[in-house]
Design a protein around this nucleic acid. Structure first.
Lengths: 232, 232
DNA sequence: CGACGATTTGAATAGGATCAATGGGAGTGG
DNA sequence: CCACTCCCATTGATCCTATTCAAATCGTCG
């Protein structure tokens, strides 16, 4: 465990209010590992042995059923995943793989649960974190059920644009293949959706996107804070 | 607040481990009301003023965007809804309406949050409840992204069958209109999906369904515990 | 330069949605 | 008790969206 990573982890809302001694206890039990790209860290159905924290790189959460596979979310530094499974001492509902070479902190779930029992502040922080996770999935579910593929893409572009400083030009944070799966469509359909958005000022060059008519795009997308806001 | 309802509420996992005095405090601040059918209790976007607990009847959670509307879930006695919004002191992400005449307990969210700060056992119970809610939505999201409409219906029927004693005959717990919306399809499409399932032994008479070839149906549905199980 | 993977494009198909019309109870009022 | 009405569900026809399969193109990396 490299000491220089601790402040980052410590500053996570999840660990912020925890006592120093308890935090150190947790970190001493944890493993920091570096994984190559495209390595499957966990598979859905496995018992939740660890809580994962992405320190560096990027991790894709995905799910399989029958032949299919779909991306459920992306975790970037510094973020945790599969907290709920750890707390319930249940099996993972999602699989996870690295998108690129990544450093990941693995905290044995037994330790997380013990500390959850002993550290009141930690328990409360977990509530806040879980509530946020829950609301995020609800928003994604609404997005999928209430919008067409083109609308989902348009809103996603608007969101990336805001995340990246509202300059009207943005960079896709993941490959188009992944983006398509995240938005619940095929890569071919994503490509066509981009074409559909061309009249609305959306220009694509690789993973760089220019939004040249934000008004028109927003008019089509009809962004809804109760779906698109990641803050509330 | 009718005293005869208290044991039910008390026995909710959420309140079970709470001290008697704190539970009474919470209940004294609460309102028990009876609402007629089809009454909108809350609208998404409203500040979360109350935590709701369904004592009797049935409540539909739904969401709107643009012209559309979709059912997000059904809450039956005794169950709570919109806990996450209350804890985060945020706006509701979902609207709620009664399906039929219902008795609903409304706990001021300020009281819930205060008790959450003061009562450690309550805070822990909330974690478990939230983790369950989270996993439920994740499963629904997987269901929607990884399965066709017919598969979703088939699996839903198998689930209802198990819920109702695995007798091979079941009753739809909600109207077909609602079921369709819950499954993410139109009523017309649901009707056609039932027809598609006829060769698999699915016989529909009103809201009574017979599953006469469970093996064939399961073979088509390919149920997956990581999607369909409500217990884990 | 060549090879590979990712993206795009095209054509055909399938899955769902929409619109319109019909059928079928449940409840109401005569 | 029956006729009427209304709402829900079903059916049919059509349209639109999205998937699939196939092929071409682009870009990157060795």
């Amino acid at each position: 465990m490299r000491p220089s990573d601790l402040p980052q982890v410590r500053s996570l809302e999840l660990f912020e209010s925890m006592s120093d001694s308890n935090f150190e206890l947790l970190m001493q039990a944890a493993y920091l590992q570096t994984f190559p790209a495209q390595l499957e860290l966990i598979a859905e159905g496995d018992p939740a042995d660890f809580l994962y924290i992405v320190i560096e790189g990027c991790v894709e959460l995905f799910a399989r059923s029958n032949g299919g596979e779909t991306t459920m979310g992306m975790v970037r530094p510094v973020g945790t995943f599969i907290l709920a499974a750890v707390l319930k001492d249940a099996v993972y509902l999602m699989s996870a793989r690295t998108c690129k070479r990544s450093r990941v902190l693995m905290v044995p779930s037994e330790d997380v649960r013990q500390l959850f029992q002993r550290d009141e502040a930690f328990a409360r922080a977990i509530v806040v974190e879980l509530a946020s996770c829950y609301r995020t999935v609800v928003k994604e579910h609404k997005d999928l059920k209430l919008r067409t593929a083109v609308e989902r893409l348009a809103n996603r572009l608007l969101r990336y644009n805001l995340d990246q400083g509202d300059t009207g030009s943005l960079e896709l944070p993941h490959g188009k293949r992944t983006l398509a799966s995240l938005l619940g469509m095929t890569p071919e359909n994503l490509s066509r959706a981009f074409n559909t958005l061309k009249p609305y000022g959306v220009v694509v060059r690789g993973n760089k996107i220019s939004l040249n008519d934000l008004e028109a795009l927003a008019n089509l997308a009809k962004p809804n804070p109760l779906i698109d806001d990641r803050t509330t």
